[in-house]
Amino acid sequence: MVLLGYNAVYIRKLSDVVNSRPGKFDAKSYVQKLWAGRLQEKLDSAIDVNTLKESLQTDPADGFGKYTHALAIGNYRYAMVKGIAMVDVVKEDEVLVTIQSAQPFKAVVLTEFVYGNTLRDASGLIDLQAFPNTGDLNGVSGELNKKVRQEVIPALKSMLKPGNKIEFTGAVELNKAHLRFDDIEIVPVRIKRIS
């Protein structure tokens, strides 16, 4: 029993343990740093949505491997895409657009309900092992989505009027088993009015 107890626990000074531990994770400042730095680089290098579509339709395995990211296992993959679109309809929670390509297709720009991990995972910037618990990891998503809702969307609402041509960059979610681009939902991060 003594041997079991000796091998089961160890005793240290609490102050030493506390000092050697990293502080509490601050999702807000983490996201602020991410947003101002590496995320901008990712937005600059986002894949054109038509290139992505063609790649996934020609060679899905290669396309998903090259252009998409995911932190969890499963069929859902995420990508940072850019493209040019024409605004069709402005609704209360979303904006319907037609993406310009050889075969134009409809898409939805989210302007109200921005939740989930789409932007975080599409960025491909998060290392799962760097987060000691899922609460912190989800905190990153929460802060990213908050930034989109509070900073990005209010600024772009004036550009999203029917008939306007826009250049967008944003995050999308794709299902490997049921791949479809029609009505794909875009979490907007950058939008610029062209005409």
């Binding site: 091998n7 089961a8 626990v9 160890y10 609490l14 343990v17």
Partner: peptide, 11 residues
């Protein structure tokens, strides 16, 4: 008492 009791896997 400024003490921390840690546990091993066996513990």
């Amino acid at each position: 008492v400024d003490t921390y009791i840690g546990f091993t896997v066996l513990g």
